[in-house]
Design a protein around this nucleic acid. Structure first.
Lengths: 217, 217
DNA sequence: AAATAAATTAGAAAAATTTCTACATCTTCG
DNA sequence: CGAAGATGTAGAAATTTTTCTAATTTATTT
């Protein structure tokens, strides 16, 4: 029998799939029975809840109904800097983990991770407010050791924060105009970002970009 | 309190996300406590289990680690024709529901469906071995009524020869201009083809088109 | 066979995207 | 510190793509 955690906690789950919410709730209750768990199926609901309540831990899917992106992490973090944020996603950890940690997440876990890894992650988040898999930790260490001028093995690593935001929308099938509206910047700015993304990723079309990104996953 | 179902059942869950498995298990146990639930995180494991055991109900995610497709449903059904199959997926119901039902699924439900809809679906599958949402039922009825003019379940079937050529280039990442040069036709002609392809495939972007085509292939 | 529908093709005009240039910040490194 | 490079932004102009309309040809149906 594993150790139980038993100090009271407020937790917010942001996730649009009811079954996943149910599974998460059960895991949390198994680890710490004295929690209050709120849930939001949309980003907007989450923002609303977060402005009215304070949470020790937020577990969020960042790929909710197309509204993906580190921006959500940023905003949640800005509302309550003390809140620990665990990002869970369908996206690949090696590709997106580091970027999301940079965006302010305190933990990152693929939805395909094992049940035991979920236990470990939730436990770590509750106790230390931090969680990174061994692989991700190594990536973080490497990132900090490697000389910045050295070419990145993973081109995704040379993609800046803003560029990654744009890229995610691009990959989701959004048009330049739509992205400009979402990020509230000029269309041509999006165009500039797109051009630099394609250049950095060494491809000449959106399709090739997607292939490359999924290849790196 | 809803009615409990209480005849013994063997159930197989094919799903690669542990949290979703956990959520499903809980829902099933709530509805019928006397079940044996096996789980498979990969299609291969599922095939193996299905050859050795017999299940009254199989709940499967058909978008497992990229190995999607109606072929999985067909094969599961051929192993045990009597087994009821409920397909759950991230994919859109209106687009994929009918094709999967045709492939032999007895039920189809989006993972974004509400908790109550999951209850209803699981209950219906247990009792009747069938489940289709109201929207999907109507689609099925329509499909059977309009037997006069040919109705394609798979939109790919309505794509003409020339459109297919253009589509293949589009999917390969070629630009409108490049395609025009290759096929020796005007750029705007390619544009017209592209527009009709997107319309026929009921998508609004190249990315969505690719997703759809790779799903249906 | 005539009528109807589908397929292939473009022209013109409108809309969107790309490219080039530029500038203010912000980072990093010698 | 100060130079060099990366980042985020956008205006103007060039280019490409999309949309609308429509003419021809090619099936299909009654």
């Amino acid at each position: 029998m594993r150790l139980l955690i038993s100090h009271f906690m407020n937790i917010l789950i942001i996730e649009d799939e009811p079954l996943t919410v149910l599974g998460l709730k059960q895991k949390i209750k198994d680890i710490n029975p004295v929690t209050t768990i709120d849930t939001a199926a949309s980003v907007d609901t989450a923002y609303e809840l977060a402005t009215r309540h304070s949470y020790e831990l937020v577990i969020m899917d960042i790929d909710i109904k197309g509204k993906a992106g580190a921006g959500v992490v940023e905003r949640m973090k800005s509302l309550h800097p003390g809140t620990a944020i665990l990002v869970i996603t369908d996206l690949d950890e090696r590709t997106y983990g580091l970027p999301y940690m940079k965006a302010g997440a305190d933990g990152f876990l693929s939805k395909l991770a094992s049940s035991a890894q979920f236990d470990e992650a939730i436990r770590a988040m509750m106790v230390m407010g931090k969680y990174a898999s061994v692989a991700l930790q190594q990536q973080i260490i490497q990132e900090n050791q490697v000389n910045r001028s050295v070419r990145y093995v993973n081109p995704l690593m040379s993609i800046s924060e803003r560029e990654r935001q744009v890229m995610n929308h691009l990959i989701a099938g959004k048009s330049t105009g739509e992205i400009a509206a979402i990020l509230n910047i000029n269309k041509t700015t999006v165009g500039t970002h797109k051009m630099r993304i394609l250049k950095k990723m060494q491809v000449n079309s959106l399709i090739k970009l997607i292939e490359k990104v999924t290849m790196l996953s």
